[in-house]
Amino acid sequence: MLAKRIIPCLDIKNGETVKGTNFVNLRSAGDPVELGKSYSDQGADELVYLDITASYEGRKTFTDLVRRVAAELSIPFTVGGGINELSDVDRLLNAGADKVSVNSAALRRPELVNEITSHFGSQVCVVAIDAKYTEEKGWKCYVKGGREETDWGLFDWAREVCERGAGEILFTSMNHDGVKEGFANDALARLSDILSIPVIASGGAGKMEHFRDTFIQGKSDAALAASVFHFGEISIPDLKHYLKSEGINVRL
């Protein structure tokens, strides 16, 4: 049976790992290559490296870092941040990334998703969605690292990119991110129900129970977290043993 995946996310700024609370107030948390190797040894199923400054400063993702990670790591990893066109994807895949995640650029120009999947296959294309829920507007997608609201609703946009060939959805709830009170399981379950591709839950992990809940109530295929892993609040082996004891199929 296919295992549920645990994915540490490494936010990268100037070659260092950082983690923000609600997308601001960044704290440093170590060397990205060493940290990635350590997660791999502990049993992480995949890694995500996000160049968090790229989308609004227009910088290219750190190709050299990707090359170093690819040389050292024997599990799959995704690279995101600042991917605006096909040549960015080509460069990052050539450097050894297994998948790329696109966010703002796809919202600006949805055809980018078709271009990536027709050139490199659906499996390399993760569409990352940052969305915020408000009473008056419901779930709305945001661009530029959560700085700018768009007209797209979360579920319409997810359906749209799925039809355009996206391989996975990485959904971050801006309401839950950094708050550590659990994932946005209602929205995640609805995404899983309407989409035919895997959904990765992001934003809100604080305790091991939150992972169980997103796999069961949220119907998530994978769960992503950063600070709880970086600062040792949850160890990956403990988490996986806990999930297994709760009847969830994980790789041990």
Binding site: M1, L2, A3, R5, D45, S122, Q123, G167, E168, S192, D193, S196, I197, P198, K219, D221, A222, R251
Partner: peptide, 13 residues
């Protein structure tokens, strides 16, 4: 069933 997504992507035994 709907939960069986294609492609299979991830870790299996």
């Amino acid at each position: 069933v709907h939960e069986q997504k294609v492609p299979q992507m991830g870790w299996n035994t």
